[in-house]
Nucleic acid binder design. Structure first.
Length: 302
DNA sequence: ACGCGTGCCTGTTGGC
DNA sequence: TGCCAACAGGCACGCG
């Protein structure tokens, strides 16, 4: 289940493998995976991949199509927040959401689709090169993930993009705490709500709440501002530590080199229901919040 | 505004 | 050994 640190790790391992290459062909093996922008598919052929980056849990690939047929290269969509600013001079994007089981991998050129391969990009190192030098696979076992092909102007019409909340590693703890404090929902629900803070999923919600010593069920508006500020600091720390260890691999997650992350070894609570708390030995308690399995320590979290 | 239930999906796990 | 329910969960959607 790729969350912010996992997507960031994928960006870092995928980027050196594909930036600068040209897309020779695209094979859509599962129609529903291409959620939007089918009409822009022809523009991808012959385009050069110029950038790979992340916003929230989205992985974005910027491409430069061949000269013909480029429209609004200069158009600048209205931006709600600076965090949603797109790189300049990129006329076309692919936005991928990996959801639970989405993966990227660059295979040798002759590799055939695997059971769960949904999209294949045939890549070449030179423009109009006949020989394909590698194939980028987007695999997704459960097909929750998607790809959208978008021009810069299309992002303004994409509600999910427009409503994305704070980028947790680019915002000050004070700003994050303020945003949380405005909410009346339970604190774990607020952390998971992509409109409030973007990029946090079940793992890092539970882990940051444990570090901050806050009960997941606690109403956000009932928590003292200073405790929310500590939560923001702890959230940033846990996200950064996970990025430093290349993310968490529970079962499915791998980076774009096929490697597992190591941060799952540092979990205090996630997936440790009924096991002893690493700090006080109390049996960790499982519950269900916002429809997700939730684990907390009844002693350490108040 | 918010919580909750449901649907989308397929593979793994555990009980009988 | 095999069958099947429960479970994993990000996000949209509808309801109260």
């Amino acid at each position: 289940m790729p969350e912010l640190p996992e997507v960031e790790t994928i960006v870092r391992t995928l980027s050196p493998q594909i930036v600068g290459t040209y897309i020779r062909d695209v094979h859509i093996l599962h129609q529903k995976t291409l959620q939007a922008g089918e009409e822009l598919l022809p523009q991808l052929i012959g385009a050069q991949i110029t950038t790979v980056f992340r916003r929230a849990k989205l992985l974005l690939v910027g491409v430069l199509p061949e000269k013909k047929g480029i429209e609004d290269i200069a158009s600048t969509p209205s931006q709600k927040e600076e965090e949603n600013a797109l790189p300049k001079d990129v006329p076309l994007f692919m936005a991928f959401h990996l959801k639970m089981t989405g993966r990227f991998f660059v295979h040798p050129s002759e590799t055939m689709p695997l059971k769960h391969t949904r999209i294949i990009f045939d890549l070449a190192t030179k423009h109009l090169e006949k020989k394909c030098t590698g194939r980028l696979f987007f695999d997704d076992m459960r097909t929750f993930g998607y790809c959208r092909i978008m021009r810069p102007a299309d992002f303004a019409q994409w509600a999910f993009w427009q409503k994305l909340g704070l980028e947790p590693l680019l915002s000050s703890p004070q700003h994050i705490a303020k945003r949380l404090h405005e909410k009346k929902m339970g604190i774990k629900s607020a952390l998971l709500d992509q409109h409030v803070i973007a990029g946090v999923g079940n793992i890092y919600a539970d882990e940051s709440l444990f570090r901050a010593g806050i009960l997941p069920s606690q109403k956000t508006c009932d928590i003292a501002y200073t405790r929310l500020e500590k939560l923001a600091v702890d959230l940033q720390a846990v996200l950064q530590q996970s990025i430093d260890e290349c993310g968490s691999s529970i079962r499915d997650y791998r980076d774009a080199k096929g490697n597992a992350g190591a941060f799952q070894n540092n979990f205090f609570v996630y997936g440790r229901k009924d096991q002893p708390c690493k700090l006080c030995g109390t049996s960790l308690q499982g519950s269900r919040i916002a429809g997700r399995g939730t684990v907390h320590c009844p002693m350490c979290q108040k």
